[in-house]
Computed example of a mutant assay.
Amino acid sequence: MKNNSKSFLKFATCCCFMVMTLNTYAQKPKNDKIIGYRMSRITGKMEFFNSNKEIVAAYPFSNITLDEHEVGFLAVGTSTKRGLMSDRGVMVVDTIYDFLAVVDKELALVFQGEKSGLIDFKGNIVVPIIYDNIDHFKANGRFTVEKDGKRGIVNRKGEFIEPLIPVHK
């Protein structure tokens, strides 16, 4: 009988220790947003860390723009392609664009070759990537688009407010 109680006590102690250890590792820090990055000397990857200096993600990027607009996304990429990563370290838009810049809280400007367009933060194309130039009017959510010597205005949904008309120089 004494042998069984000792075995039970060891088993119970072991289980409590395992549960405490698992809880410690399973809990995410309250503030796990990315606040910085550094190059790993071991892997050569960029390591993104939170305020506790814990690594949140590691990717082979060489080109990073931190969340300047405080919208929760970072423009990241290699020397040739750009994508979008959340401030929690999750890739939301693969590194497929020649250029990518966060425009505001909902959209990013992208280039493929010489053409530009707008995407949302899920990677959906909002304004087709067919324009020679896109300018942003921040106050009213409208964008001037230019294509083949013509200029027009589109809204945040990519709908024309003013159609493309020839530009007089």
Rank of each mutant, 00 (worst) to 15 (best):
L9D: 15
T43Y: 12
L84W: 01
E106S: 07
I129E: 11
D98E: 10
R142Q: 13
M85E: 01
G117T: 09
N155K: 01
G36V: 05
V167R: 03
G152E: 07
D120G: 04
V92L: 02
F73L: 04
T24F: 15
G123M: 08
L66R: 04
D132L: 12
A57P: 05
D67Y: 00
Y25A: 13
G141W: 06
E159G: 11
E114G: 13
N3R: 14
P29T: 15
I42K: 14
I64N: 05
D132G: 07
I165L: 15
K28G: 13
G36R: 05
I161L: 03
E70C: 09
S5P: 06
D98C: 07
I134W: 08
S86C: 11
D67Q: 02
I153S: 02
Q27P: 06
K150P: 06
G89I: 04
F61C: 10
V92S: 00
G117L: 09
V110T: 14
F11Q: 10
Y97C: 02
A57F: 05
M1Y: 13
R38H: 15
L118G: 09
M1T: 11
T21N: 04
V110M: 02
D32K: 10
P163H: 10
I55H: 00
H136N: 14
Q112H: 04
V110Y: 11
S5Q: 14
R151M: 12
I134V: 01
P166H: 04
V90Q: 15
Y59N: 08
K33D: 14
P60I: 06
I34M: 03
V110L: 01
P128L: 04
G158Q: 02
V154Y: 10
V127R: 02
N23E: 09
F8A: 14
E159P: 10
V154L: 08
F121G: 01
Y37A: 13
Q112N: 13
Y131L: 11
L118R: 01
I42R: 12
I35A: 03
G149Y: 00
F61W: 08
M85T: 00
H69P: 04
L9H: 13
S7R: 15
V127A: 03
N4H: 12
G89V: 08
I134H: 01
R41H: 09
V92E: 01
D32L: 11
V92R: 00
L66F: 12
V167G: 06
M46F: 06
S7N: 11
K157T: 15
Y25P: 03
